[in-house]
């Protein structure tokens, strides 16, 4: 069991650094939501910052890839994502088509490079 969950310390970090900082905004919405103007300027800024943070994480995974992804050459990683994005735009924003295309480029490129 301890192998399944890892150390109690890591579970504590999951709750303190993952669960609580995330859940607090949901519960705030439940408690104080009625009085807040959904269209306020602060929320536009918040959405922009949240989007940019997620964009940074996407860039981090591509730039400093974890585990097996590090075995793929830089150019191929960027190329696969760029190809996926291009197909997404060409197919009236189909996430499915974009993801499949990106994956095919990665697999084919890696196979071709050997």
């Amino acid at each position: 069991m301890s192998e399944f969950f890892g150390s109690p310390h890591s579970l504590l970090i999951l709750v303190l650094a993952g669960f609580l900082p995330n859940e607090v905004w949901r519960m705030a919405g439940l408690w104080f939501g009625a009085g807040v103007d959904e269209g306020s300027e602060v929320l536009v800024w918040v959405r922009a910052v949240a989007t940019a943070i997620l964009a940074g994480v996407i860039a981090q995974i591509l730039l400093q890839p974890p585990g097996a992804l590090a075995g793929v050459p830089d150019g191929l990683r960027y190329g696969a994502v760029a190809a996926g994005f291009a197909v997404f735009m060409l197919t009236q924003r189909s996430i499915f088509a974009g993801v499949v295309c990106g994956e095919i480029v990665l697999l084919a490129g890696k196979w071709w490079l050997g």
Partner: peptide, 11 residues
């Protein structure tokens, strides 16, 4: 910071 966006969704 990433979770603040949940607030307007809940509201």
């Amino acid at each position: 910071v990433s979770a603040i966006r949940l607030f307007p969704m809940v509201v």
